[in-house]
Design a protein around this nucleic acid. Structure first.
Lengths: 355, 355
DNA sequence: TTGAAAGCGATACCAT
DNA sequence: ATGGTATCGCTTTCAA
């Protein structure tokens, strides 16, 4: 039988309250009594107040739940996600708060369960599509919740930290159109209603199921429209995972058939880096033969000389934490700036002058 | 007033047990009654069973606590740590279990508190020195606990997953001595009793305070002894953080004064990469002018052509999780294999023939 | 400074 | 299939 607070109280011959105070409010009892109690506790093998019981009573836990769209292990795979988490961790640390990473299994039921049972004071949803079971489950908990990377559809009450994905994407696309590119292909994660790897037709970007992808596609589309390129002329490629490997794999659909696009827009750096890999494999040079633009500006992007959109991942995480934990912080919605980083992977459309 | 299970029970006119069953054991009551109950719950704004209360009653949480030696944000900075966590996350995910990252503040008191209050079913300690307050606090909780990266001092009862750091280090050092190097310097994290950045004298490797560093230093020392190089002749450099930047910084102590060592052993890849950076800055070529060996084989190591010791970080994390969560898994201690990866950063001692 | 009593919100077991 | 009752382990008034 595991010893409880009561066990110790009985052994010392005091009440439960006193033992409780010995742990949580040392100033409420004489030092020597406290000493006696702690000693008895050690002797009896009492390990201190039971956290669940204490949380129940106090109505406070000291942890926030973190929700991801993908498998938990993804959080540690994508450099962008890692940066975000790092920022979040920094804030949590300052508030002496733990981070409960909640697995979002493909099984929606189980995922919702996990959220339902999470012993936390609040949630931070990151990349979780609005229609995902665990998103609803988290909302249903009716706890403070902050959403990262989701701007458009959030009502004024919810806490949001994000960027203007649409505008940033437009900037990325305009960079290409300004360089004279017109035959531009788009690669993005999860474009269509079902998970699919390869070319896909999406009548309207507005129909993309993943909110982040949707915003970015709309931005691309609008920039194309400005130079008279209709969305229906754009080849769109969907990927299932957000990985360099799949980026390289799906790039084949664009590079191994004529006419090749003169430029490729990837809605994430990891995909863009994959495209660069695919180019290298084929002896093509990015920026000269084909221009490539990414999104995120993960650390690897600079080394690969990838033109991309920089967004402050670390700050995003940091601020997400503050929106949840800083009582001071009154505002509920924060939009962070983005910046086009022009590097060697883009250049003028050389085809223009030719044949 | 927040609605509770009781509220719903009263509204529907059933007992608490029945409402509880509606949530946790749907098969225990008629579908229509369940329907009625869920409906009433929704109407009343009841968000489902309170996790803390449920954990208290069930004596089970569905989360394991993860302890680090450094700041929480470090977990997302060191590629090796990221790999480990990823493996751990994979296992946790499979068991539908969350990961509670516990901040280990520099303030030992607060750190111990955080561990004490963590609502978890077990702990995974990673890189936590045995004398750290939170290590004791975790032990005191008397929950299942697995220790990663700690082999020597663990008694047979504790669950451990690790590598033979000493033997691996010896292999690394022998690689250099076999190449003819005799004037070898060592860079490691936290060599002396206090945090310090720069040259430091450590009479015996056994006195290093951090267990992992200690094991590796002993391995180096033993390999040196085999060729008649005494530990007292070895220049040892301590770093405070485990970072590439600091690796480059402390390398200056070795490179900017004569006689330079002909080879450098770094007890972590991040430090070794920093050393390579420092070499490049000075126009020196690794493997020709100076040989460098790391430890860990993080992904960046291969790209930098760094000779190093590979240890299976991902597997380590995965197995740590299994030791905690797989009832099947009977064994308590797992030692993983390591491998010397010879790359371009090491070469024969050219000085031997010269001068 | 210390103790008694009243919950916090739920689940398990045994009846019915 | 449903209800009653005891209990999980602690904190928090409030009174002594």
């Amino acid at each position: 039988m595991k010893p409880t607070l009561q066990t110790v109280a009985d052994a010392v011959g005091v009440s439960r309250s006193t033992v409780s105070n010995a742990y949580s409010r040392p100033d409420q009892l004489s030092p020597q009594l406290r000493e006696t109690i702690l000693e008895a506790a050690a002797r009896l093998g009492y390990t201190g107040p039971h956290p669940a019981a204490r949380s129940l009573r106090k109505g406070q836990v000291g942890a926030i739940g973190v929700l991801f769209s993908a498998e938990l292990s993804y959080a540690f795979t994508d450099p962008y996600a890692v940066q975000f988490l790092r920022g979040l961790a920094e804030t949590a640390e300052r508030h002496n708060t733990g981070l409960l990473l909640i697995p979002l299994l493909s099984d929606g039921e189980a995922a919702a369960q996990a959220v339902q049972n999470a012993v936390v004071d609040g949630f931070c949803a990151y990349c979780v599509p609005a229609w995902h079971a665990s998103y609803d489950a988290a909302l249903a908990r009716n706890l403070p919740m902050v959403i990262a990377e989701w701007h458009a559809n959030a009502d004024p009450g919810t806490r949001v930290v994000g960027i203007d994905d649409m505008a940033a994407a437009r900037t990325a696309a305009r960079h290409l159109t300004a360089l004279g590119h017109r035959r531009i292909a788009v690669i993005a994660h999860w474009i269509g209603p079902v998970q699919h790897s390869g070319p896909i037709t999406l009548a309207r970007p507005e129909d993309a199921p993943h909110h982040v992808t949707r915003e970015r596609l709309i931005g691309y589309r609008d920039a194309f429209a400005e130079v008279g390129v209709d969305w229906s002329e754009v080849t769109t490629i969907s990927s299932i995972h957000n990985s360099r490997e799949e980026g390289a794999a799906v790039a084949a659909h664009l590079l191994d058939r004529a006419p090749r696009p003169t430029a490729i827009l990837a809605a994430a750096d990891l995909l863009a880096l994959g495209v660069l890999d695919a180019l290298e494999t084929r002896g093509l040079q990015a920026g000269r033969d084909i221009s490539v633009v990414g999104f995120d500006d993960i650390p690897e992007a600079a080394a690969a000389r990838l033109t991309t959109i920089r967004q402050p991942a670390l700050d995003k995480g940091r601020i997400a934490g503050e929106l949840l934990l800083d009582a001071e912080r009154a505002e509920r919605q924060v939009v962070l700036p983005t910046e086009l980083m022009v590097r060697a992977s883009t250049g003028p459309n050389n085809e223009a002058g030719r044949s």
